[in-house]
Amino acid sequence: MSEGRRELTGPVEVIGTGLLGTSVALACRRAGIEVLLTDVSADHVRTASALGAGRPRADGDRPQLVVVAVPPDHLGASIAAALDAGDAVVTDVGSVKTGPLAAVHDHPRVRRYVGGHPMAGSERSGPLAATADLFEGRPWAIAAHPDADPDAVGLVEELVGLCAGVVVRLSPEDHDRAVARTSHVPHLLASLAAGRLADAPADHLRLSGQGVRDVTRVAAGSPQLYGQIVAANAAAVLGLLGEVRGELDALIGAIAAADGDALAAVLQQGVAGTLAIPGKHGGPVRPTASVFVSVPDEPGVLARLFLAAGEAEVNIEDVRIDHDLGRQVGLVELIVDESRADHLLASLESRGWLTHR
């Protein structure tokens, strides 16, 4: 790649036709790029092919770009094999970047490797869960090592653009610290919280509301896959868990001593953390307010509610649904710009909806 930057024209080989790999393949096919599919599971390749994600790679195929989308335990070996196989640029979609880089650091073609990580996914897995728009508007970390060929970096960034992702440039080390803070440790804490529910008495669980669902949602992911991810990022995760352990000890002490000021300080730090999370489309956090609407659990009711909000010319920033355990009724929380909440409340009530703030 010494004669100037090349454009991504394909073929693109996707190694690993699970959720992420097949979604990358579908996005490439949507852009008209030929896709070659490789997987140890012939069934996955057949399924991904039937979905229109590409065709099985054949002898003689020469991809321009290889996307490695295999489980964390196999990333290093798969990246090395892809570098061995030809002159393609190689990237991956793994959740950890320092480990795979260490595995190929001494490879003679390591300049053609550029680590990547799209921050997108689902509790579902496999090719049938894939979609071409999985990455639209989502951050996609490009964690290029210092010796990476600039043209290889450019080619991988073109892939991100083709998938409608948003490039975020980080070093491999910074990437791993960042995902430990924003993904891996939160997942572990959600698992600990959810674990307190596994053997809870049924009468206790009947008090479950939207709050506990919000806190525990990600704990439903694959233990095997997430175990591999956390183990691969052990150093960064352990550092943060040590901080959490110290803060937990302080919290226990504050509660035991009935120290209201210390307890409030811990809770206020939590508020500060929620405000630090970027707002919609990555912009600054804007003040919002919630309008709660009681709705019957029946087909079409949510469509009518959203239509009513649209007729009131109020944009819904987010929505949550809490189900009444004793009745066929749900409580829908519409999160809107703070300045529009009272208007939405009045407009919905005028249309016969049962609401409150």
Rank of each mutant, 00 (worst) to 15 (best):
277 I>T: 13
271 V>I: 11
184 H>F: 09
306 F>R: 02
173 E>R: 14
357 R>V: 10
13 E>C: 14
263 L>N: 03
286 R>N: 06
52 G>A: 02
343 H>V: 04
269 Q>F: 01
212 V>T: 06
236 A>V: 03
115 G>W: 02
134 L>K: 07
81 A>S: 14
273 G>E: 14
279 G>Y: 14
80 A>H: 10
92 D>R: 00
100 P>F: 01
138 R>H: 14
242 G>R: 12
323 H>P: 10
197 L>K: 03
324 D>R: 05
106 D>K: 09
105 H>T: 02
328 Q>C: 00
11 P>Y: 09
116 G>A: 07
254 A>N: 04
155 L>W: 11
278 P>Y: 06
279 G>H: 10
311 E>T: 06
304 R>Q: 15
230 V>F: 10
138 R>T: 04
333 E>N: 05
123 E>W: 08
342 D>G: 08
227 G>L: 07
102 A>I: 01
134 L>G: 11
250 A>T: 09
331 L>T: 12
325 L>F: 04
323 H>V: 11
124 R>N: 12
59 D>P: 15
256 A>T: 12
226 Y>L: 14
318 D>G: 10
9 T>I: 12
205 L>G: 02
68 V>D: 08
288 T>S: 12
33 I>R: 09
346 A>C: 05
341 A>M: 05
54 G>K: 02
84 D>R: 09
178 A>F: 13
289 A>C: 12
284 P>W: 03
219 A>D: 09
287 P>E: 10
121 G>Y: 08
23 S>A: 02
310 G>Y: 07
182 T>F: 15
170 L>N: 03
45 V>L: 03
340 R>M: 06
346 A>D: 11
247 E>N: 07
223 P>D: 01
144 A>Y: 02
350 S>P: 02
325 L>W: 09
353 W>C: 02
209 G>P: 08
193 A>G: 03
241 L>T: 08
244 V>A: 06
336 V>D: 01
274 T>G: 04
99 G>A: 13
336 V>H: 04
165 G>L: 06
36 L>V: 02
125 S>Y: 02
102 A>D: 15
194 A>T: 07
156 V>W: 11
109 R>S: 10
65 L>T: 08
14 V>G: 01
148 A>Y: 05
289 A>S: 14
167 V>I: 10
344 L>V: 00
3 E>C: 00
336 V>P: 00
25 A>Q: 08
248 L>T: 08
220 A>H: 06
119 M>G: 07
346 A>F: 04
137 G>F: 14
335 I>H: 07
248 L>V: 15
88 A>R: 02
10 G>P: 13
252 I>V: 14
253 G>M: 04
85 A>N: 05
112 R>V: 00
141 A>T: 15
42 A>N: 04
151 D>E: 15
27 A>F: 09
249 D>A: 12
13 E>H: 08
113 Y>L: 03
69 A>T: 06
48 A>S: 05
169 R>Y: 12
285 V>H: 13
305 L>K: 05
145 H>K: 11
35 V>C: 06
22 T>G: 13
129 A>E: 01
196 R>A: 14
65 L>H: 03
279 G>R: 12
185 V>N: 07
20 L>A: 00
206 R>F: 05
